[in-house]
């Protein structure tokens, strides 16, 4: 191998390593996209992610919208969940409380987490939750029932968002999922729960 051939192959090797490193870092960035996406949704309300706030609205708005409620229980969890009312009419900036009734239909104590979002998705940025059972894991004893409050308001700033101009009704939807069981059997139960219906 001549000197120039050697130089060529060492330059080739450097290019290959750079290429390999690029590919690996793209895979890394792809995985980093998952937490970034969650944070992005929380921050911007993207995909109908409601905002979590500490205090009530500081000002009152002028529009009145319908807020409808939807409650679901994922397969594999023997609970029932329903809102006390199908829908309420809410003026922007006015804090509203709605109760959800939950019941454990099984003979043992179980835990569940609720996932939630609002549709149309663009309203996520203006749907502010002050208090919600979905913020933490819920436990119910055998056949126990509970009434959970959801405290929310619609941010008056939604009136300035052109995406919201034609939105008159927002649906807040919950789905209760069984909380992950202790580590040992988590995978197996998840497979059975989701696939088996």
């Amino acid at each position: 191998m001549s000197a120039s051939q050697e130089a060529t192959s060492s330059r080739n090797l450097r290019l290959a390593l750079a290429g390999g490193a690029t590919a690996l870092s793209m895979i890394g960035l792809t995985f980093a996209a998952a937490p970034f996406y969650t944070a992005f949704c929380r921050a911007t309300g993207y995909e109908g992610t409601p905002q979590i706030v500490k205090a009530d609205a500081s000002s009152k708005g002028s529009r009145t919208l319908r807020v409808a409620f939807d409650a679901n229980v994922a397969p594999g969890l023997a609970w029932r969940l329903e809102p006390e009312t199908d829908a309420v009419r809410v003026r922007t900036g006015k804090t509203t409380t709605v109760y959800f009734r939950a019941q454990n239909l099984s003979d043992k104590e179980t835990a569940a987490n609720a996932t939630y979002n609002v549709t149309p998705e663009v309203s996520g940025a203006w749907f502010d939750k002050v208090q919600c059972f979905c913020f933490s894991e819920q436990h119910l004893g055998p056949h126990e029932t509970a009434e959970w409050p959801v405290v929310f308001f619609l941010d008056p700033k939604l009136e300035t968002d052109p995406s919201m101009a034609r939105v008159d009704s927002i649906t807040l939807s919950y789905t209760l999922f069984a909380a992950p069981e202790p580590r040992a059997s988590a995978g197996a139960s998840k497979r059975a729960g989701l696939a088996g219906g």
Binding site: G19, T22, A23, L24, M26, I27, L29, T30, F31, A33, A34
Partner: peptide, 14 residues
């Protein structure tokens, strides 16, 4: 290819 395919690989791995 170098920039896009690893993203597919990552998504499919997830």
């Amino acid at each position: 290819l170098l920039l896009a395919l690893p993203v597919l690989a990552g998504a499919l791995t997830m």
